[in-house]
Amino acid sequence: MSGFREHSSGPDGYVCANLMAIVILSRGRCGLSQCITYYLVAIAVTDFLVMISAVILNRIGGIYFRYSVLSTTPGCTVSSVLVYTTRDGSVWLTVAFTIDRFVAICCQSLKTRYCTEKTALLVIGIVCALSCVKNIPFFFTYQPLYILDGVPWFCDIKSTFYTLTIWQAYLWLDRILTPLFPFFLILLLNALTVRHILAASRARRRLRGSESRGDMEMENRKRSIVLLFAISLSFLLLWVIYVGHFLYVQISGEPYFTGLDFNDPQYILQETTNMLQLLSSCTNIFIYAVIQTRFREEIKNLLMYPFATLKGFLKR
């Protein structure tokens, strides 16, 4: 099993950006429905937690605070399980958002019942709960690397993890649930959504004839799905190398790289896959900023708020 050796360049900026997205989206002033807002806030929160657990606690803590509580066996075990839990939550909330938009666009008969605030909160709660439950077994895969003065230090994967069939089955289940199944599910739903949109657009143009140029409903529909495609396609592009590398390792039988030669092509490829799948937790804030005009306006208002407050105080 490959470890999480995340690159830690500039994590503070990404953490602050995700925190800003949470604040802005939570205010509900971006012109989005409450259902979409719930999903986007949940995705932003899990992305924020991925950066905290995977980069700051797991990577930076392990490098710069090597003999802190994070390096004890309980500390690094909790840190590692948090990485898997937050990663799964981020991935499956993206899937949940994709499903919600697929139903809203392609399944009009189900839209009124499924695309509601209550359903969104229920789905978000279930995804978060299952992400926690699914990764509990990882607590039992680690053992101390050594014990010094009665204190267990660092995490070493138990040898039984590689030999027992039940652990190998669990590892395959983990990889199938994240990211193989979500990857292909998002790809399928986007393909079906595009096909439905193209068919609906052609039918509407035929019905409206020469009036199709001024069809504001179609224009609004196109703008509403740009956000969905941007988020889901970003996920697909950033995870495709990770998925391809995993499938190659399983088919070829070659193990993951565990050596110390940092110039080895296998090491570079493996670290690139880890970096890109973590980057998927940083891109959504930039997608919101590029696509949503009102989101950009809210960013400006949030950044200017301290100066506006100071200006009003000085005037008084």
Rank of each mutant, 00 (worst) to 15 (best):
L227D: 02
L180I: 12
G75L: 05
L57N: 07
L57P: 02
T72A: 12
L260T: 14
I268G: 02
V249D: 05
F97P: 05
C106I: 12
L180R: 02
Q168N: 15
T293G: 06
Y14R: 00
I147C: 09
D264I: 02
C132Q: 02
V290F: 09
L110W: 08
L302A: 11
S68N: 09
L171F: 13
T160E: 14
E217R: 11
L25H: 03
G75N: 04
A96R: 00
K315A: 13
I166C: 13
T258E: 12
T72K: 03
F313Y: 14
G125L: 06
S53H: 15
I197F: 07
S281Q: 07
L189W: 01
V45H: 02
N284K: 07
L314T: 02
A44M: 05
L269W: 14
Y267N: 15
V41Y: 06
F257G: 12
L310I: 05
R59I: 00
L238P: 02
V226N: 08
L227K: 04
V55E: 01
Y146I: 01
I157D: 01
G259C: 03
Y14I: 00
F307S: 12
L171S: 11
F295L: 03
S232L: 05
T73H: 11
Y162M: 07
E271F: 13
S212M: 14
S68P: 08
E117Q: 12
R5E: 14
L40N: 07
Y14K: 04
D88F: 11
A54N: 04
V45Y: 05
Y242E: 10
C16E: 04
V226W: 14
R208H: 10
K222I: 06
Y38N: 09
R316A: 05
Q270I: 02
T141L: 06
K111A: 14
T72L: 07
Y39D: 06
S2A: 14
I105Y: 12
Q143N: 03
D174E: 13
G31F: 00
N301L: 03
A199E: 09
P255N: 11
R206V: 11
I36G: 07
R223F: 03
Q277F: 15
M304K: 14
I136A: 10
A21I: 06
T258H: 15
I285P: 00
L302H: 08
S68M: 09
S90K: 09
A199W: 07
M51D: 03
I157G: 08
L302M: 15
S234K: 01
I43M: 00
A44E: 00
S80H: 04
I186K: 01
D156V: 06
G89W: 04
R221I: 07
L177A: 04
S159E: 15
I63L: 01
C35P: 07
A21P: 00
E6A: 12
L192C: 09
L110G: 07
I22N: 05
S79C: 15
L198C: 13
L130Q: 13
T309W: 12
L314D: 07
S53K: 02
T112W: 10
S201C: 10
L276I: 06
M1Q: 09
K158N: 10
T258A: 13
V91M: 11
I186L: 11
